[in-house]
């Protein structure tokens, strides 16, 4: 077994384990923390595929920003009696199950469409597309325009947020 395979199986096993913990834990904070662990494993898997940029983004954005937001919301909602969540809301559960099933079908579809074997990992191609440097060059050449529009989007969001959240205007 090569080191790469070892990494893959190790990270995969921890990832699946933490994923199971997310849905089985009764305590929502435990679920959220398990999800963070899951995200870290995923980031590790991206690294083995030479996708440094996505790996870093996975940690900064998902494990960092989004999960912190999740935890804040959980703590703000103060879900002491999580039993209330698990007993009722059957309609929502059905929708949730439907969505999960849809995602499963999608993954199966991708697996089926690659039934004649997955393409072999192409080291050179992976290095030429996944590194921070390559993505940075793309961002400032081909995608310069959308990149600049994003700055407008953020400015508009700041103006809107200040307007809505500022305690006293003038």
């Amino acid at each position: 077994m090569t080191l790469e395979q070892l990494m893959f199986y190790g990270l995969g096993a921890v990832g699946i384990g933490s994923g199971l913990l997310v849905v089985t834990r009764r305590n929502p904070v435990m679920s959220a923390l398990s999800l963070v662990l899951n995200f870290f494993c995923l980031a590790g898997l991206y690294l083995t595929l030479n996708a440094q940029f996505i790996a870093v983004i996975q940690i900064i954005v998902y494990a960092g920003a989004i999960m912190v937001l999740f935890l804040f919301v959980i703590m703000l909602l103060n879900l002491r009696d999580e039993r209330a969540l698990s007993d009722r809301l059957s309609a929502r559960k059905i929708i949730g199950a439907g969505l999960a099933f849809g995602l499963l079908l999608q993954v199966l579809y991708i697996l089926m469409s690659a039934a004649d074997g997955f393409p072999q990992k192409d080291e050179a191609l992976a290095v030429s597309t996944g590194t921070v440097e390559v993505i940075g060059v793309q961002l400032f050449t081909t995608f310069l325009f959308p990149f600049e529009i994003t700055s407008l989007l953020l400015t508009a969001a700041i103006v809107g947020a200040v307007l809505l959240a500022k305690k006293k205007l003038d």
Binding site: I149, A156, G160
Partner: peptide, 12 residues
Amino acid sequence: LGIELMSFCLYV
């Protein structure tokens, strides 16, 4: 991005 820029402003 255009749709989001429009929507953000309309939400506010």
